[in-house]
Amino acid sequence: MTQLSSYLLVSALLFCIGLAGALTRRNAIMVLIGIELMLNAANLNFIAFWRFSENPETMTGLMFALFSIAIAAAEAAVGLALIITIYRHFRTANVDKVEEMKG
């Protein structure tokens, strides 16, 4: 039987890979991919803690993970639309080169 800690370790590893990617990559799409990885690590934590909780019949973690997946999908759609608009405007998706705003 697998222990809870192994799932938590996988989730921590996933989170840190996403964190490293979001911090180091220059391309905005890669930053977004890193954020998606971190969100997925949080989802895995929700599911694992739900499965190993005292009373899994309440399904709280399951519901939270479902809503979190929906929010992540919305965030990805809006983020990619923004990236494409920025790319059309500045001709680059490099987050270091986009330095000015109009307002």
Binding site: M1, Q3, L4, S5, L9, R51, E54, P56
Partner: peptide, 12 residues
């Protein structure tokens, strides 16, 4: 994670 006793818990 490794230090906490929660991690040793087995699945219901």
């Amino acid at each position: 994670v490794l230090a906490s006793p929660v991690g040793k818990r087995l699945a219901a």
